[in-house]
Design a binder for these strands. Sequence first.
DNA 1: CTGAAAGCGCTTACAG
DNA 2: CTGAAAGCGCTTACAG
Lengths: 353, 353
Amino acid sequence: MSTRNANVCAMRRKSLANPISIKDIARMADVSHSTVSRALSNSPMISAQTTERIHRIAEQSQYRASEVARSLVTRHTRTVGIVVTTIADPFAAGVVDGIEDAATEFGFSVFLANSNADPEREIRVVRSFEERRVDGIIVTSSRAGAIYVRMIGQLRIPIVLLNNQHPSEYVQSVMIDNVEASARATSHLIELGHQNIAYLGDRYGEQSDTERFSGYRHALQAAGLCFRPEFIVLGDGKPEGGMKAMAQLLALAERPTAVFCYNDMSALGALRQVRVAGLQVPGDISLTGFDDLYISQYMQPALTTLRQPMRQMGRMAMETLIQLLKGSASAHSIKVAAELVLRESTAPPKRRK
Amino acid sequence: MSTRNANVCAMRRKSLANPISIKDIARMADVSHSTVSRALSNSPMISAQTTERIHRIAEQSQYRASEVARSLVTRHTRTVGIVVTTIADPFAAGVVDGIEDAATEFGFSVFLANSNADPEREIRVVRSFEERRVDGIIVTSSRAGAIYVRMIGQLRIPIVLLNNQHPSEYVQSVMIDNVEASARATSHLIELGHQNIAYLGDRYGEQSDTERFSGYRHALQAAGLCFRPEFIVLGDGKPEGGMKAMAQLLALAERPTAVFCYNDMSALGALRQVRVAGLQVPGDISLTGFDDLYISQYMQPALTTLRQPMRQMGRMAMETLIQLLKGSASAHSIKVAAELVLRESTAPPKRRK
DNA sequence: CTGAAAGCGCTTACAG
DNA sequence: CTGAAAGCGCTTACAG
């Protein structure tokens, strides 16, 4: 680098690194920096006149108060840390959208971090949030085990878990009511006249899978329908796995007439596989999903599914956190009900027995 | 609240607000806090012995260095602010995923904020980022006008724009090459034998729409095909608008045999509308999209589209920012090529003229 | 109503 | 190799 370039760089760096401070504007206004600080926060201690004058000067000189300096003395940062598996997952994105909305409303900024489903990375992320001195943490759909939850319980930072594995009793959480919802969707299928209903689950042993499966079984049992092990088939929560699992179902001597899918992504794959096999939904097979992703209403046929109110859930998590920060006691665990959204992918079976 | 509760709250607050500091561990180790600071950053000035001892003590006492205090003295925060329209948009989510990945790699944390396409809110967001003293800002797909871009150009914080309206020459940017890509997709349709190709655009006057339309026209012109105004129809970038726009096309006396859609979401709606009309894709009409969202490969039929490498683009934006921070000059504007992904939604027209 | 002083938790010259 | 001192940009008792 030439000397001239080096100089330019140095100048540039300097200008970048030295925003104007409270002292600068104190000098301009010919008052102490305490007065500036008070005026800028509209303290009643300062005369209306000086307050206004200082505001004007601050405005003109494009002054931006340093939140980092302020945080050091106030001992809070007005930030939240959010950890998601990956923000590319539409469910996570919906939740974060809701959190961000509420956070902004309360004057908080949000740190976002992906765990990539890697427990070690998740721990590093939480650690970095501690160092950033976030006021609170929200973790979404973490699969990190019970050990980790205990660790997190010992955290000195308030935390709220959203749709997490093993929320434990030590932390606040907001969870979708999986078993109730799944039972409802299964009952819907039964009421339509289906007797051979399959469950297309998730092979990764998610707690949500266990719960949804449980709701499915309850509904079957309540209706006096027998449980058929060959109707239980496992995907991976994504279209790819849904296709493979559906292929297994289609290969059966006696095919189910309806399939309850673990989530919408699985249902998308299942639907595709049915088509590949030259069959129709819901003509030959009815399909239900879980989540109600934005695209599900545009699937062909539009998907009947259980709607998780992602944005509201995110909002609730943020609001719970705010309560925690204020020290007011609030519900330990919020269960939210999914809404059954009836669309085109479910219909009565072709021939009743 | 009872007195007892109040006490509990006070204790709790205290424990939350007072993490252990460098002074505490200095006391434990019986050294000065300067020594602790140096040992913790593995300064060669400190003996291996003391360094190790201090590390052990810090570990045991769960010490977490305060990034906020550190930031105050080092004058950088190792944070980036990202502004997206809404993180619920799958394109934004993909980009943020890439940014986050690269950021973590470089030891940066990311602040995320939604602008909700509201210029005022966008300005507030940027302002809050300034106060947070972020080291840099990345703005994705902002529609905020040229005035705003100028304002942002005067910002003392390095900024990089991704797929933005009017990037201007004052700021770094990474942009998809819309016109080249669109021309390629249109040419693909032409090579298949289509002569009546419609353009289903976006009514909000996005620059990307203008550019994609331009690529479409270039390709038509290069092939000597005449441009038909009635084949230009406007959606809203979402399935809903795609449906309506496609309905207009289907109502035409002479229907197009292929439709180039502004983006995948529009194509999803268009596809649905074709189905509603009892027609087939690609049998009766070929369809192409833009983006290659995750779901596009699972559409029925799988969508032929132009792939924007969202994660890589996010990564590039972050890397550009890092370069900027290091003061090294880098390309002003990076143009990235979209990849034409051939799938099932395009085929030769039924009857050639 | 205003100012001087102390302090938040670090880093980093400056001494020794 | 280690420590005392100054300072980053704020807020907030304490005086006047």
